[in-house]
Simulated scan of single mutants.
Amino acid sequence: MTTYTYYTASTLDGFLADDNDSLDWLLTQPIDDDGPFSIDDLMASTGAIVMGRTTYQWVVDHLARTGEAWPYAAYPTFLFTHDDGADVVDESITVVSGSPAEHREQLEAAARDRGVWVVGGGDLAAQFAESAMLDELIVSFAPAAVGSGRPLFPRAFDFQLLETARNKAFMIGRYRVIGARG
């Protein structure tokens, strides 16, 4: 059975990015790439990736600034957007629109009995949860606050804390999705 995991980082005040979609707060924090809940651990069990348009655009812009290539070329990536004219930077990217449930079969076929990494943003992760297609959240909380911006999870949901760890500056929690509140 395919599992869906929202793996992300957040500020202590619950934001993925500030009002300008900046992740400067994240890029200045120390982390051990081989430490607990590393990206390599996640990728070892990942078969497909999904992300929203804002997250995708941030990644593309960041890669353009650093001169790096698309880092997920080995994984089928699904870009959820309302923009039919979205430019893709790699042949591994498929542009889709609509609800996650409309694409479940395609996502799970692409994942080949491995997991689906819901990169974000928070609104997309919440849409997956509302479609009963989000099993876990793994959130690395950084010792920073930005005051406002893109929320970690913009819907009323309950979660069960399963595990915690520390990776240098980050406090990490792994949560099971219980369901919508009320």
Rank of each mutant, 00 (worst) to 15 (best):
M1V: 02
T2N: 02
T2G: 01
T3R: 13
T3M: 09
T5I: 08
T5Y: 01
T8S: 05
T8I: 08
S10C: 04
T11C: 05
T11W: 00
L12G: 03
F15S: 08
A17F: 12
D19A: 13
S22V: 09
S22E: 10
W25H: 11
Q29M: 06
D32K: 00
D33H: 08
G35L: 05
G35Q: 03
P36A: 10
P36L: 14
F37V: 12
F37E: 11
F37R: 08
S38I: 06
D40V: 00
D41G: 10
G47F: 06
I49L: 11
I49W: 00
M51K: 02
R53D: 03
R53H: 09
Y56V: 06
V60P: 01
D61N: 02
L63T: 01
A64R: 15
A64L: 12
A64V: 06
R65P: 04
T66V: 09
G67R: 06
E68I: 06
E68A: 14
E68H: 08
A69H: 05
A69N: 15
A69D: 14
Y72L: 03
P76V: 06
F78H: 00
L79W: 07
H82T: 08
D84S: 09
D87M: 10
V88G: 02
S99W: 03
S99D: 04
P100M: 10
P100R: 03
A101M: 07
E105T: 14
Q106I: 09
L107V: 14
L107P: 04
A109P: 07
A110D: 06
A111G: 04
R112H: 10
W117D: 01
W117I: 00
V118A: 03
G120E: 01
G121C: 00
G122M: 13
D123I: 01
L124I: 03
L124H: 06
L124S: 03
A126K: 07
Q127V: 13
S131M: 05
S131E: 12
S131I: 13
M133A: 03
L137G: 11
F141I: 15
A144L: 09
V146N: 00
G149V: 08
G149S: 05
F153N: 08
F153H: 09
F153G: 10
P154H: 12
P154E: 02
P154L: 12
F157Y: 04
F157R: 04
D158F: 12
D158P: 07
F159N: 04
F159W: 02
L161A: 09
L161S: 07
T164Y: 11
A165I: 15
R166W: 13
N167T: 12
K168N: 12
A169Q: 11
F170P: 01
I172Y: 05
V177P: 00
V177C: 09
I178N: 05
A180S: 10
A180T: 05
A180C: 10
G182E: 06
